[in-house]
Design a protein around this nucleic acid. Structure first.
Lengths: 334, 334
DNA sequence: CTGTTAGCGCATTCAG
DNA sequence: CTGAATGCGCTAACAG
């Protein structure tokens, strides 16, 4: 009932375990005849090597962990694809963990991955806390932050230039004549939210528009529902005056749009909306969303490349910090 | 540089490896004092157990593989969440593989998971080929199919009742007065497509509407773009006459909607559309989509439960085949 | 209550 | 070219 071992295979074929091991690992020093015989035997017997044993023996693992903050966010699906493909191409496999944006799960995931002896990992941090990262450093396991970086600590990362994205979005609204622009953002403890806000501010500044803290709204969880109810509050408040919104994400934008429409206001005539991410559905909404596009597939791909490069070079090199450029996609909402 | 071992820990604390092992595994037979000392040491030294070694030794693994056909499909994100939570609750962890609907990747994934000695797996088959499943059977690794089953072989599965879903969708259109209903389906080699088509047929039959093979259209890849171009072809064909469409998925429905609107036709006035899945964006489209909702989270949860139940009982019991009921969600498109 | 011993499945010396 | 012996890190008897 328990699976065949290499030894079993060797015995039934009538050779030694080492020889079987050699053909399994494509060693040159095996007689063609023996090799053929063994290969056939392996196939016939349906032998499946035990990677636990192999990896234990080799004291390494050829697998990298990927800790993603939310796989239900289509934004990350492409990031993962990019990572997965790059990894497989280089002979690595991936263990994927979803933290559902909960820090506790991030901790558990990192812990588990460490125990499984991944050789490195990609991580989308869900919290500015760096305990996890220190743990990784402590274990000497290299990692690359994806999509977000942490300002408190110097690490490898591959992110989109969120400050630029925020700037482009805001600049677009300003060009359209808007001066009172609301920013519906995430908690600025994470770089993506912080930087997009920074880009927003810079655009304002460059155009001589005074920054108004009252026009910066923050939602605790980055969901559509949260944005919807938050926007309803804002729209009810007569003291808050604006003609456009720059949202942290397309999801938030969708919630905002719903709230705006719920009040009988027109988009973009009454209020213009810009989102962020350019998720697939952005172009399919009733009012196709003007948004910021980031090269997600590449994000994942580059991150893995950096990680593996790191693995291959023994020396402790300087961190790679990559920023890819986002671009503005103009549709109907602004 | 290489990580601490249990033996290292034991030595620096001044006890034997077995004792450390005991506290690690919460054995009762350890003196409170010793236990405390060891727990402290473990924490201070930052020891991370090597799961490869542990699992090798125990000849089991506490991890289950999940092979999903497409993580970028938000439909599956919830399935995965359900599976992940159920697994963690019972002390199992998950290795997630995305096959991107490619059979070759499905094979690779299953192979890898087997080598990693997962104790069982969930699988959304992308192909009617059962080689993979036979391989699993051969290795004695239990598995549960999710979302789709294969008619050729008797297995555990947890699916939505697609025949019922197809029936509900079609029935709804018929009640609305439609008699010429197009079905835009997937390749009916997989159960989901096949069953939805079957439900469509049954509804027709029950209402005395003749089934017309010309009204069944099939797209090879289940993407929006494919649906869009396919529908354009259909709409150009004057010989094909219909007033409503039942689509295999919301994605296809979105493509169809785009094509219909592109021709200046109104939905649902000129052509009514029903989708399937009730993905998040279904309610957010310009014309909110009437569709079939399936309890996705529960699908994943139940699948894991079945798998683990299977694991716990040594006896080779009869396959569990669970069908959960979908429901009709009426919105604006039909 | 604690330590000693053995072996999980494999890759790699080292001999032959 | 092939085989026998060793140990990766860990847990589970078995003694004490």
């Amino acid at each position: 009932m328990s699976p065949l071992t290499l030894k079993d295979v060797a015995k039934t074929i009538g050779v030694s375990p080492s020889t079987v091991s050699r053909v399994l690992n494509h060693h040159p020093d095996v007689a063609p005849h023996t090799r053929q015989k063994i290969e056939l035997g392996i196939k016939n017997l349906g032998y499946t090597p035990n990677l636990l044993a192999k990896d234990l023996r080799l004291e390494t693992t050829k697998t990298i962990g990927v800790v993603i903050s939310d796989i239900s966010n289509p934004y990350f699906a492409r990031v993962i694809r990019g990572a997965e493909n790059a990894a497989r191409q280089r002979g690595y496999s991936i263990i994927l963990c979803d933290t559902a944006e909960q820090y506790e799960l991030e901790e558990e995931s990192v812990e588990l991955l460490l125990k499984k002896r991944v050789v490195g990992l990609l991580l989308t941090p869900v919290h500015e806390d760096i305990i996890n990262l220190l743990k990784l450093k402590g274990q000497g396991v290299p990692f690359v932050l994806v999509a977000r970086y942490l300002s408190k600590v110097v690490t490898n990362y591959v992110v989109s230039d969120d400050a630029l994205g925020g700037y482009l979005a805001t600049q677009h609204l300003i060009k359209k004549g808007h001066k009172k622009i609301l920013h519906l953002g995430g908690l600025p403890s994470l770089s993506d939210a912080w930087d997009r806000l920074a880009g927003y501010k810079r655009a304002l500044l460059e155009n001589g528009i005074a920054f108004d803290q009252n026009l910066v709204r923050t939602v605790s969880t980055v969901t559509m529902d949260e944005a919807y109810s938050h926007m309803n509050t804002v729209l009810s408040d007569k003291k808050i005056d604006f003609t456009a919104i720059f949202c942290f994400s397309d999801y938030l934008a969708m919630g905002a749009v719903k709230a705006i429409q719920g009040r009988g206001l027109k988009i973009p005539a009454d209020i213009a909306v810009v989102g962020y991410d350019d998720i697939e559905m952005a172009s399919l909404l009733e009012i196709p969303l003007t948004t910021i596009r980031t090269p997600r597939y590449r994000l994942g791909k580059r991150a893995v490349e950096i990680l593996i490069d790191h693995l291959l070079q023994e020396k402790d090199e300087t961190p790679q910090q990559i920023m890819v450029e986002p671009s503005l996609v103009v549709r109907k909402s602004a």
